[in-house]
């Protein structure tokens, strides 16, 4: 599903954020990406949906080769990838329903499809009863669930989450994790960068640790730090 071959990223200001990463992530996997601040996790993730272009190396997502991809094709790559952020990035003037529907409108889905599919994903994130609420009327956890609903509404093959629980308390974080796990069970590949030791250590998944822009560990059911 996701394949990287000796990928490097040097930002225009000279910072070398990723220095030779090769990975292979299979369809349906759930992968944590951990590492200290500035290690290069976000950069690593951003290259997957082409927010950043690698300086060197090959990346392929679901059969698309990002190195040779034409500018015009990028929107179609992004339709295969859902993205969730620490700060939700919801539109404050739109209701829950509209925020999720927005992602379908901009790829020109029909009204009938939108109505049906949005209610389905709101059901998955358990927000069906708050469809008409505005973002500021929701708790942080609920807002993140809206963001997740928006990320999966177009049925992406991959869901990418950059510290999705970074702003949430432990209970709410667990709520989010259960929803992500459910989405993963339905077959969506998930890549999630996180600093949350509790979650990583108790909900064991494949773990990729990055240090100084290189992979330092890649374990099938890893823990946040080396097990002593």
């Amino acid at each position: 599903m996701i394949q990287m071959q000796d990928v490097w990223k040097t930002y225009p200001n000279g910072v070398m954020a990723v220095n030779g990463i090769s990975i292979y992530i299979k369809k349906g996997e759930f992968v944590y990406v951990v590492g200290s601040s500035g290690a290069g996790k976000s950069t690593f993730i951003k290259m997957m949906y082409r927010e950043e272009k690698p300086t060197r190396g090959e990346i392929s997502i679901d059969g698309d080769n990002l190195a040779t991809m034409k500018e015009k094709h990028i929107p179609f790559l992004r339709r295969k990838i859902g993205v969730v952020f620490q700060d939700f990035k919801l539109l404050p003037s739109l209701s829950v329903f509209e925020n999720v529907a927005f992602a379908m409108e901009v790829i020109e889905e029909s009204k009938a499809n939108i109505r049906r599919r949005v209610m389905d994903v709101l059901d998955i994130v358990r927000l069906k009863n708050k469809a008409r609420f505005l973002p500021h009327e929701l708790s942080g956890g609920e807002q993140q669930r809206v963001a997740i609903a928006r990320a999966i509404v177009n049925n992406p093959a991959v869901l990418i989450a950059d510290e999705p629980t970074g702003n949430l308390d432990p209970d709410t974080s667990w709520e989010i994790m259960h929803i992500l796990e459910e989405i993963n069970d339905r077959g969506t590949t998930i890549v999630m960068a996180t600093h949350n030791r509790d979650i990583v250590d108790s909900m064991r998944k494949r773990l990729i640790a990055i240090e100084g822009g290189r992979i330092s560990r890649d374990e099938v059911r890893g823990t946040y730090s080396y097990e002593s």
């Binding site: 949906y49 790559l77 339709r79 990035k89 539109l91 992602a103």
Partner: peptide, 14 residues
């Protein structure tokens, strides 16, 4: 800006 950013993220064409 946020709206445009989200549009790009979910795959709206330019």
């Amino acid at each position: 800006k946020t709206e445009i950013q989200i549009m790009k993220l979910v795959g709206a064409t330019n």
